[in-house]
Amino acid sequence: MAKKIILSVKNLVRTYGEGKAKTEAVKGISFDVKKGEFIALSGPSGSGKSTTFHQLSLLDNPTSGIINFCGQNIIKLNEDDKSNFRLKRIGYVFQHYELLPELTAIENIYLPLMVDKGITTEIKKKAEKILNEMGLLERKDHYPAELSGGEQQRIAIARALIKEPEMILADEPTANLDSVAGIKIMETLKKLNKEKGITIFVINHEKAFEKYFDRIILLKDGKIERIKK
C-alpha cells in the first residue's frame, strides 16, 4: 500500500533583497515527502538547503509557493497558528543545537510542553524517559555549557521529540560533531524513524551517512538537481 504524503512542496521560492541586490536562494522547487520516510536534502554549500528548511518549518516566510502539510497549506496560517504548528506538529533540530543556556538539559526538553500542560510531574517524567532513551539521564540537571557537542545535539533531538511531532526536520545535525558522535546521532534518528514511525527529514552532506536515507533530494543553485533513491 502506497504511503500517504505528509509534506508536499510546490514551486517554493525564496528571494532576498530587491532590485540589483535581489538574490534567489530557492528557485521554485517542488517535491513530496511520504509519511514515515527517512529522507535527506543534500547539496553543496549555498545551494539553498537551510533556506528550504526554514520555509518548511515556518521559521521564515517564503516569497511564493505552496507548502502542504497533511493537506493544509501552512504558509497561509496566521502567526499564532504558525507557532502552534511549530510547537505541536514538527520538531526542528538546529545544526548548532540552539539550546537555551539558562535552562538545564531537562528544562530545555520539557519547555515546549509547558505551554499546554504547565510544569507537571507528567512532563518531567516524559522528559526523563526520553533522556534515558538518549542515554543522558544522569546529565539532566546540567546546563548546555556543561555538555559536549554530541550531548547537546541529543538534547536538541529530545526537545524535538517530546512533542511527539509528525515530522522532525534536522538541519545538519552531525555537522559539528566528530564521526563517532555523528554516527550516534544518525543511529538515534534512524531508530526514532523505525520504532516510532516519525517522518525524518535531514540536511546532510556527508557521503558516509547516505546509507541511512530512503531518498536524497539533491539541490544545486536553489533548484532540485535530482532525487536519489
Binding site: 502567526e79 507557532s83 511549530r86 510547537l87 526542528y92 519547555l111 515546549p112 505551554v115 526537545r159 512533542k163
Partner: peptide
C-alpha cells in the same frame, strides 16, 4: 535576541 529566536522557533508564541 538569540534566545528569544530559539524560544519562538520551538513554537512558543511571541506574546508569551
Amino acid at each position: 535576541k538569540t534566545q528569544i529566536g530559539i524560544i519562538k522557533a520551538i513554537g512558543i508564541k511571541s506574546k508569551i
